[in-house]
Amino acid sequence: MAKNDLQGSLDLLVLKTLSQMGELHGYGIVLHIQRASDELLSVEEGSLYPALHRMEQSGWIRSEWKLTDTNRKAKYYRLTAAGQKELRKAEESFAQLVKGVRAVLRHAQG
């Protein structure tokens, strides 16, 4: 998937990740998306943090400084109720987008 498309769906990926994994720091989110997409998707770190801050201020996610398993200080993010709602909306609109793109592609082939 091209870089721009990924950026548009970044919010969706982050929210979904947090909803599946509970609490995660930024690096963890990057790793999870990479792993879960079978290395197909790679999140640009430079875009991740502005997106995280924006989502936090929108009230979708909350952050807290904690220690990692390896005793390192890291900022952990978790989904809020508003974030849950936002995730459902994002999933729906992404499904619509995929459906639309597929239809267009089929049309071109036919």
């Binding site: 930024g26 990692t68 390896t70 390192r72 200080k73 890291a74 900022k75």
Partner: peptide
Amino acid sequence: EIDAELRSHIEMRTA
């Protein structure tokens, strides 16, 4: 604050 967050990210990746 941002530096701290990034630093921890980079450290984890480095490890």
